[in-house]
């Protein structure tokens, strides 16, 4: 049997402002993850980095260390590649007042 490979949509067409996170995704079966963040509309204001977060329980989160600039233009895609992430994954972005982005966040997982 081929190793599992899966695309999960964890945030779709959500308008991110302030402190925003993707839906926690349980994927301990996967050895590697590629995370794409696509701006579905023109972003507003200064775009922060998004950071990858890990969790021991799906409720409490710690930074994984990876930080990538949010996409600034419509349809621009930012990407992060990670391994050794345990059982849960999410991303977080902290927008300053007045800035925002409408995003599609997808996880691409492989066993």
């Amino acid at each position: 049997m081929l190793p599992e490979s899966h695309t999960a949509i964890v945030t779709r067409n959500e308008h991110w402002t302030g402190s925003a996170t993707s839906q926690p995704y349980e994927c301990g079966w996967a050895r590697e993850a590629v995370i794409f963040v696509r701006a579905l509309k023109p972003s507003v204001g200064v775009q922060p980095d998004f950071s990858v977060e890990l969790s021991p329980d799906g409720m409490r989160w710690v930074p994984e260390g990876t930080r990538v600039a949010m996409p600034a233009m419509q349809d621009e895609i930012a990407v992060a590649r990670i391994t050794n992430f345990g059982n849960w994954l999410r991303i977080r972005a902290d927008f300053e007042d007045g800035s925002s982005s409408t995003v599609l966040v997808t996880l691409h997982l492989k066993a």
């Binding site: 599992e4 999960a8 949509i9 964890v10 945030t11 779709r12 067409n13 839906q23 995704y25 349980e26 994927c27 301990g28 079966w29 579905l40 021991p56 329980d57 799906g58 409720m59 409490r60 059982n87």
Partner: peptide
């Protein structure tokens, strides 16, 4: 995607879980 009804817009992908508890 803005034309999607709100009931559907909230849906997200299912997971393969080990029912991991803290």
């Amino acid at each position: 995607l803005d034309t999607m009804l709100p009931g559907y817009a909230q849906h997200s992908s299912p997971m393969l879980s080990t029912l991991g508890h803290w």
